[in-house]
Amino acid sequence: TFELKGKVGKVVKIAEDHYLVEVEGDKWIAYSDEKLSLGDRVMVVDVDGLKLKVKRIP
């Protein structure tokens, strides 16, 4: 999972307290300090167990 840091993915689902992002064909639970929208491109900035911390990228 640490090899996911720096990888780019996209938001595929928005849940009440987390996001579902697809990175390299796999779906992961993710969270972010900013509000994300469906389809946003994101970069993995940290890995916390099986959850990814992501940030939006242009």
Rank of each mutant, 00 (worst) to 15 (best):
Lys53His: 10
Val11Cys: 05
Glu24Ala: 04
Trp28Glu: 02
Glu34Ile: 07
Glu3Asn: 02
Lys55Phe: 10
Lys7Ile: 01
Asp46Gly: 03
Val23Ile: 13
Gly49Ile: 08
Ala15Glu: 08
His18Leu: 09
Lys55Met: 15
Gly49Thr: 09
Lys5Arg: 04
Val21Asn: 00
Met43Arg: 03
Leu50Tyr: 12
Leu20Glu: 05
Val54Thr: 04
Ile14Glu: 08
Lys5Tyr: 15
Val21Asp: 00
Thr1Gly: 15
Lys5Ala: 09
Ala15Lys: 08
Gly39Gln: 12
Gly49Lys: 10
Lys13Met: 12
Val23Gly: 01
Thr1Lys: 15
Gly9Phe: 02
Leu50Ile: 09
Tyr31Asn: 05
Met43Ala: 04
Ile29Glu: 07
Pro58Glu: 06
Pro58Cys: 07
Pro58Val: 05
Asp17Ala: 07
Lys10Glu: 14
Trp28Leu: 03
Gly25Val: 13
Asp46Thr: 03
Lys13Val: 09
Val11Met: 09
Ser37Tyr: 14
Glu16Arg: 12
Pro58Trp: 06
His18Met: 12
Gly25Leu: 09
Val11Ile: 12
Gly49Arg: 05
Glu24Leu: 04
Lys27Ile: 07
Ser32Met: 10
Arg41Met: 15
Asp33Cys: 13
Asp46Trp: 03
Lys10Ala: 14
Lys55Ile: 14
Pro58Ser: 05
Lys5Leu: 15
Gly49Phe: 12
Leu36Trp: 02
Lys55Pro: 00
Arg56Asp: 03
Asp48Arg: 07
Glu22Gln: 13
Lys27His: 09
Ser37Glu: 12
Tyr19Leu: 10
Val47Ala: 04
Asp26Trp: 15
Lys13Phe: 13
Leu50Asn: 06
Val21Lys: 00
Met43Lys: 04
Arg41Ala: 08
Val45Asn: 06
Ile14Tyr: 06
Ala30Asp: 00
Val45Phe: 11
Glu24Asp: 04
Gly6Pro: 00
Ala15Asp: 13
Lys51Pro: 02
Lys5Trp: 15
Gly25Asp: 07
Glu22Ile: 05
Lys55Asn: 13
Ile14Gly: 07
Ser37Asp: 07
Arg41Glu: 14
Val11Leu: 11
Val45Ile: 15
Lys51Ser: 08
Asp26Ala: 14
Gly39Glu: 13
Ile29Arg: 15
Asp17Ser: 10
Lys7Pro: 00
His18Tyr: 14
Ile57Arg: 04
Leu4Ala: 02
Lys53Cys: 05
Gly9Asn: 00
Glu34Ala: 07
